[in-house]
């Protein structure tokens, strides 16, 4: 669910308990599952970008529908912490952004 304007976000805030999320999955890294980090309001898998980025290295924007669905898909079927751990051993979320920026 996305807020088109700050006013709509404020409306949600006033509504309070009616709607408990506005425009994203997370505001902190700890809002995401283990092996994921939070950036721009969405959960991203640590280290997965090196394998998945392919020809999509020009855009770092999480608003991209492909990356958003990727994030949500991986978040829902993430059942192997050991895999994630080994992925993150070599690279971090920060590395991912830097790599895509320079590559």
């Amino acid at each position: 669910m996305h807020c088109k304007t700050h006013k709509s976000c404020f409306t949600f805030f006033i509504a309070g308990s009616l709607i408990w999320a506005c425009g994203g999955d997370c505001v902190r890294n700890s809002d995401c599952k283990a092996g994921y980090y939070c950036e721009a309001g969405y959960c991203w898998e640590k280290g997965s970008a090196d394998a998945d980025s392919g020809g999509d290295t020009d855009s770092n924007e999480p608003s991209d529908s492909e990356t958003t669905s990727q994030s949500k898909d991986t978040a829902t079927d993430s059942d192997s912490l050991s895999d994630t751990g080994s992925d993150t051993a070599g690279t971090s979320g920060t590395d991912f952004v830097d790599d895509t920026g320079t590559g």
């Binding site: 408990w20 506005c22 309001g41």
Partner: peptide, 15 residues
């Protein structure tokens, strides 16, 4: 309460 963080061009609000 509510937590506010930066999103993709808008604020993200979470409990």
């Amino acid at each position: 309460g509510l937590s506010f963080g930066p999103g993709d061009g808008h604020a993200v609000v979470m409990p």
